[in-house]
Amino acid sequence: MALTAAELMFRPPAAWWPTAWIASWALTGVLLAAWVLLRAAQKRDLRQIDRPPGHHPAAAAPSAYTETETATPSAYAETETATPPTCATMDQ
């Protein structure tokens, strides 16, 4: 590392390097802006897929429960009572 630092101090970088440096940062900004726009469009599309037909966001009450939120615990009984594998069952 010391040799590289000394080389940079005694010999200037290539003439095209300042242009490449600025271009790389400009490209980073453009790509970030494109990613933000594409991600926002993707989230919008995913929200529209999740909505039932005829659903209007203004009509939904914020405290309204969905069918999955009011499911009874018995619906999940199979997953809750399952026992994890033990060493004895894994050896067989």
Rank of each mutant, 00 (worst) to 15 (best):
residue 1 M to E: 13
residue 2 A to Y: 04
residue 2 A to I: 03
residue 2 A to D: 05
residue 3 L to Y: 00
residue 3 L to K: 07
residue 4 T to M: 09
residue 4 T to A: 11
residue 4 T to G: 02
residue 4 T to Q: 07
residue 5 A to P: 06
residue 5 A to Q: 05
residue 6 A to Q: 06
residue 6 A to W: 02
residue 6 A to M: 02
residue 6 A to L: 01
residue 7 E to P: 00
residue 8 L to E: 06
residue 10 F to Q: 12
residue 11 R to W: 04
residue 11 R to S: 07
residue 12 P to Q: 00
residue 12 P to K: 00
residue 13 P to L: 04
residue 13 P to Q: 00
residue 14 A to D: 15
residue 14 A to Y: 07
residue 15 A to C: 02
residue 16 W to Q: 11
residue 17 W to F: 13
residue 17 W to S: 02
residue 17 W to C: 05
residue 17 W to R: 02
residue 19 T to S: 12
residue 19 T to K: 07
residue 19 T to V: 14
residue 20 A to E: 15
residue 22 I to A: 11
residue 22 I to F: 14
residue 22 I to W: 09
residue 23 A to H: 04
residue 24 S to C: 01
residue 24 S to D: 07
residue 27 L to A: 15
residue 27 L to G: 08
residue 30 V to G: 04
residue 31 L to P: 00
residue 31 L to S: 06
residue 32 L to T: 13
residue 32 L to M: 15
residue 33 A to Q: 08
residue 33 A to H: 07
residue 34 A to H: 02
residue 35 W to A: 15
residue 35 W to Y: 15
residue 35 W to D: 12
residue 37 L to W: 08
residue 38 L to T: 08
residue 38 L to H: 08
residue 39 R to V: 10
residue 40 A to I: 09
residue 41 A to E: 06
residue 42 Q to C: 06
residue 42 Q to N: 12
residue 43 K to H: 12
residue 44 R to A: 15
residue 44 R to Q: 06
residue 45 D to K: 11
residue 45 D to G: 10
residue 46 L to I: 02
residue 46 L to Q: 15
residue 47 R to I: 08
residue 47 R to F: 12
residue 47 R to P: 00
residue 48 Q to Y: 03
residue 49 I to C: 05
residue 49 I to A: 12
residue 49 I to P: 02
residue 49 I to W: 12
residue 49 I to R: 15
residue 50 D to G: 11
residue 50 D to A: 15
residue 51 R to F: 09
residue 51 R to P: 01
residue 52 P to W: 12
residue 52 P to G: 06
residue 53 P to S: 02
residue 54 G to I: 00
residue 55 H to S: 08
residue 58 A to R: 06
residue 59 A to R: 04
residue 59 A to T: 09
residue 60 A to Q: 10
residue 61 A to I: 03
residue 62 P to E: 06
residue 62 P to N: 04
residue 63 S to M: 13
residue 63 S to K: 10
residue 64 A to Q: 14
residue 64 A to E: 14
residue 64 A to R: 10
residue 65 Y to I: 01
residue 65 Y to G: 03
residue 65 Y to E: 13
residue 66 T to G: 15
residue 66 T to Y: 01
residue 66 T to R: 11
residue 66 T to E: 03
residue 67 E to D: 11
residue 67 E to H: 10
residue 68 T to I: 12
residue 68 T to M: 11
residue 70 T to A: 14
residue 71 A to D: 08
residue 71 A to W: 08
residue 71 A to L: 14
residue 72 T to R: 00
residue 73 P to Q: 05
residue 73 P to K: 01
residue 73 P to N: 04
residue 74 S to T: 10
residue 74 S to A: 08
residue 76 Y to V: 02
residue 76 Y to A: 04
residue 77 A to K: 01
residue 77 A to D: 09
residue 77 A to Y: 00
residue 79 T to A: 07
residue 80 E to M: 05
residue 80 E to N: 03
residue 80 E to I: 10
residue 80 E to T: 02
residue 80 E to F: 04
residue 81 T to K: 08
residue 81 T to S: 01
residue 83 T to I: 04
residue 84 P to A: 13
residue 84 P to D: 12
residue 85 P to G: 05
residue 86 T to V: 07
residue 86 T to A: 03
residue 87 C to R: 13
residue 87 C to T: 14
residue 89 T to C: 06
residue 89 T to R: 08
residue 90 M to T: 11
residue 90 M to G: 03
residue 91 D to I: 07
residue 92 Q to K: 08
residue 92 Q to F: 04
